[in-house]
Design a protein around this nucleic acid. Sequence first.
RNA 1: UGGGGCGUCGUCAAGCGGUAAGACACAGGAUUUUGGUUCCUGCAUUCGGAGGUUCGAAUCCUCCCGCCCCAGCCA
Length: 564
Amino acid sequence: MNSTQLNSKIPSDFIREIIDEDLKMEKGEGRLATRFPPEPNGYLHIGHAKSVCLNFGIAAQYGGACNLRLDDTDPQGESLEYVESIMDDIHWLGFDWGNRLYYASDYFEKLYWFACELITAGKAYVCSLNADEIREYRGTFTDPGRESPYRNRSVEENLDLFARMRAGEFKDGAHVVRAKIDMNSPNIVMRDPVIYRIKREPHYRTGGQWVIYPMYDFAHCLSDAIEGITHSICTLEFENNRPLYDWIVEQLIETGRPKQIEFARLNLSYTVLSKRMLIALVQNGYVKGWDDPRMPTVAGMRRRGYTPESIRNFCAVIGVAKKDNLVDISVLEHCVREDLNEGAPRAMAVLRPLRVVIDNYPEGQVEEFEFANHPQKPELGTRTVPFARVLYIERDDFQENPPGKYKRLAPGREVRLRNAYVIRYERMVKDEATGEVVELHCTYDAETRNGPPPDGRKVKGVIHWVSAMHAIPAEIRIYDRLFRVPDPAGEEGQFTDYLNPESLEILTSCRLEPSLKETAPGKAFQFERLGYFCADSKDFRPERPVFNRVAALRDSWGKIADRE
RNA sequence: UGGGGCGUCGUCAAGCGGUAAGACACAGGAUUUUGGUUCCUGCAUUCGGAGGUUCGAAUCCUCCCGCCCCAGCCA
């Protein structure tokens, strides 16, 4: 993928304006460098994708580079599995960091000496207050904080204590290092923020080598500086931290100071994008894993059948601004449909089969029809579909008492079997006990194979079908979304996210046309009138394929029914 | 409550003193052997509100209102 392709759909935004301005002033000698800095404590989700597209996209647009940096400064919850998934997902999305793969944990030694430098300059000190005391001393929104009694320890004592913290002489929480800034600052972030803490937790990369770890505010800006990042793009909630970011950089970095720019993170309707929530869904077994097709993770969406192109396009379409937003899920779905419509082969499938016997079709006869795989794209080829006396059609395609605008099969009506004959309703067979329609008897019009009825009568409805004896059984999973609903226990207007326990629906009784036997894992089809489905690449079994629904043709499964 | 941000169509989002782009959604219509696709058409006399400056304001000024973020030894 070259940069022009990536840029083709990227609109201008306020970040690019800032960059243009900076470049004009020759900040960083006109060079541009960004970075994507996830913490490896979970999988990437669609919100991260927005950041990936932004950071890599901008770098590409300006002929700069984007680093991948794992922001692993807190061993809690971090793991190699997450690092690997992050790298996978970025590549899958179509971006590449080349040889610029970095880890904040690789800077631990440098960061330690930066902290020493701060201490030597009298700009940081070892504080021996405990967590509760620090909170208390910090003050509140309205009340200024109080200076720690340890604030004026000598440089020598601080250096000595810090070295012994590193050496593991103290237990967790006994001391922290704090930047000496301003306990009266109206910005709480600036009230002598903690920059180092003692934490005896094995780090997935450095193991037990360190017992002290730098805090985000200290590590992030310096990592940016070390890597020569010019523009450090992050989300809005870090706006309060920018003064601290700048403060630390100013104390320790002479030239090539990075600049932080904030943008609004993505919120998607009906979708959980809080990492905390996603971790809980996985850990509590609500889903089968991070790549469960119900998850809004890149891995989940990939397995479900989303294409990288559609996600990139979505990120371009929603734009980048500083306003809190809630993007409607229909935008995302439109983007997949738009992409899939282009190249997804069409096929026929029956999700809830209703048996249909064509009474006037010769018993034992089988016709082999050749159908185009795509109505507008002959280059996508054809496939062969058998037609026989006994068929299955979709249960919804027959209505005993058809509502107003219903176009399909009903008593006394005709309907077109897609790509095949027009059939006429003759009679129905009901289950005596339940009253449910279990079988239909119809007659076909042999004249209608390749065109409309010669007598000029109009047949509006077109339905899909499969030959009962040839159809292959398959499983199809149709997912509901993760719902955001009013919290029953909360106050009015309070919302909580949860996964509808019914949201995974497996229909084992569905039947697919035989050509789908050759389906490749990960390949998406449009099951005509049912939507786009993707052969699950993880659970793939050729003899009984599992299809995930990627998106409905229209915006919801119930839409067609709603109209009737 | 102190500080930091943000308010343009149902939802995103352009606009940067010259008279409200675009996308999704929605509503009509045309073509269609997918209720798909495609194609037309409609959809903010108004930019959170009120004043003011100006020939002219979404854009500048003043005040007000609303929403979000910050009191982790998370990021």
